[in-house]
Nucleic acid binder design. Structure first.
Lengths: 233, 233
DNA sequence: AATTAATAGTGTAATTTTTACACTATTAAG
DNA sequence: CTTAATAGTGTAAAAATTACACTATTAATT
């Protein structure tokens, strides 16, 4: 292209990218979306979805664009994780990456799981392969962050459908924390927060007592947050 | 310079900078170091110490270098806060900034307070002026982070001398949390963590019962951290 | 129609943690 | 020796957390 080498700066600049640690929940397990790399370096290795930051977007907008372009996802819960700037983290050139973690709900999860592109795959977090670049480190940090987050902010809902049962919610918490939780104590606590709205709807077509559906009460959450309430689990 | 416009890239890149929110503790108050800007934009406004990231340093190394160059500080506790990438956060050009927060001990604080350069000044966090760029937002986030951090990691020590009294430590916690703490409960809790080493030394030249000095026991901290212990206050 | 298999849903007592609270001890100065 | 100032200490009440087991309901099976 004749226009190449168009962008000139007085001082050298690292390239700026965003990477996304995308979590889903399926089969009682926390899952992670990984892409298989088509090119060198790390060809055929798995990596986090990522890409360069454009001049007309913030890093968060970039992360969201990547989720849309690489996974077809919109409206995902996303939060900044950490910025990685080790000089040799990419063998090609200096790339500083702002990492985000994101949570997809069941609907989004199934969309993705149902695609036939082989390049994107959900991995159980207990079976994450060796990844390209410093991505294992990023995933580890994202998991740690999620584990911390879940203790003081109601974030488990993001991994479920809008309607969910308390057992499903408990399973999400158990998957994130990698620990068993007592059913009665969990319900007491989570209902006591006043963030769940009981629906007049129950499971159907289950070969056991049908569980009631709940949904997250955003309005109550906003009000309680503003009044300084704390959501420790 | 004849070598200008030397650095060319296929795609435009934001400039990358680091900014530091530097906290100190004095007079029972949490303080913040601000520099008065000498140039436009925001000439004569206060701003956080910051600067561009070199190609041979990580963003954290950059933040440390800035603390050395602009405040003469070495060996400060520093931690990444958040990366700010709003497109217009700097009126000159697109600059993405990785913000860090840092804690200086009493020795470092006094060094800085004793300098005669007018450009750097400690401000009480209750009296922070309107700052350049998006720096008020960054400071607010740093305070929030520090308040969260202090609840589950022993970080108050970083703002004191190596030797400190329990009352001093309590004052640090009170300043950070902006809340009064009960003396007996604080002592019970903090001593119960097993992270303080009681010294055979007491205050001198005080017109009241001399308080015992303690120091932070790094070794015990490491061991307890590795064994998965939790340091909630 | 009765039985089975599976999960939903519920309360209480014991334990632990957190909170509230007040006086004596020691130091230097006056 | 008196004063002013802060260090240092324990206990009881309240709140939060934990441990724990049975009945209810649904669809499938017989």
């Amino acid at each position: 292209m004749s226009d190449s080498h168009k962008y000139r700066y007085e001082h050298p600049r690292p390239a700026l990218a965003a990477d996304c640690v995308l979590f889903g929940f399926d089969g009682g397990e926390l899952k992670l979306l990984l892409l298989e790399r088509e090119n060198e370096p790390f060809k055929n290795k798995c990596a986090l979805p990522g890409g360069f930051v454009y001049m007309n977007e913030t890093t968060e907008e970039c992360a969201k664009r990547i989720l849309l372009e690489k996974a077809g996802l919109k409206n995902v819960f996303i939060e900044q994780l950490y910025t990685y700037s080790e000089i040799d983290r990419d063998p090609r050139e200096r790339i500083v990456s702002v990492a985000y973690y994101a949570l997809v709900n069941r609907h989004q999860f199934e969309l993705l799981a149902g695609r036939d592109t082989v390049r994107a795959e959900w991995y159980s977090i207990s079976e994450i392969p060796k990844l390209a670049f410093d991505h294992n480190k990023i995933v580890k940090a994202a998991l740690q962050r999620l584990r911390g987050k879940v203790r003081y902010q109601p974030v488990g809902f993001e991994l479920l459908n809008e309607k969910f049962t308390l057992t499903q919610l408990q399973q999400v918490y158990e998957a994130i924390l990698a620990a068993a939780i007592d059913k009665r104590n969990f319900r007491k606590k989570i209902l006591g927060m006043g963030l769940l709205k009981e629906l007049d709807e129950k499971e159907t077509n289950v070969a056991h007592k049908a569980a009631r559906y709940y949904r997250f009460d955003k309005k109550a959450y906003k009000e309680l947050t503003q009044s300084g309430f704390n959501f420790e689990l």
